[in-house]
């Protein structure tokens, strides 16, 4: 649970920090706290996992990772933990989730992979297949990004 001051902080932290010498000062004044108090609260929210990370989010296309694919895997339920761990251990895998299989969609493990070329992505997928020993998988390459936005959380 978040305290009321933490909720306010979460609302304020949805905008980026300004590129000034003391980027937490205006925020601290607005919340009637010191900069140190604001920073302590941010670190505490990070320890509790409410803030997943603090820092720069980079546009992956702009730094050369122009190709990405969602690779979905069909894994026996009792092997899903082990398979998930193996796939998640690869640095090229940015996201890895378990999702229940559906009648028309049998896959239950999901990974996002990023590479500089289509060929590189294919090689990553081959390595994932060898390491996980999962035979039934399907690679869905991204053709277009139609929307990417940030959710506005706890809006008043």
């Amino acid at each position: 649970m978040l305290t009321s001051i933490e909720k306010q902080l979460v609302q304020e932290l949805q905008t980026e920090i300004p590129l000034v010498s003391r980027p937490f000062l205006a925020l601290a004044q607005k919340l009637n706290l010191s900069e140190e108090e604001v920073l302590t609260k941010i670190k505490d929210l990070a320890v509790r996992g409410v803030i997943r990370r603090f820092g720069a989010t980079v546009n992956h296309q702009q730094v050369g990772y122009v190709v990405n694919a969602m690779v979905v895997w069909q894994v026996p339920e009792e092997q899903i933990k082990e398979a998930g761990k193996i796939l998640a251990s690869f640095p090229e895998v940015t996201h890895c989730y378990a999702r229940p299989a559906q009648p028309k969609w049998p896959y239950n493990l999901y990974t996002m992979i990023h590479g500089k070329t289509h060929q590189e992505c294919q090689e990553i997928i081959n390595r994932l297949i060898r390491a996980s020993e999962i035979k039934n998988c399907c690679a869905l390459f991204t053709v277009a990004e139609l929307k990417k936005s940030k959710m506005k959380y706890l809006s008043l």
Partner: peptide
């Protein structure tokens, strides 16, 4: 130039 998309906190939506 758009290399940095966001500078600040990234939240875990589930925890919120």
């Amino acid at each position: 130039q758009g290399t940095i998309k966001h500078l600040g906190a990234v939240f875990d939506s589930g925890k919120l």
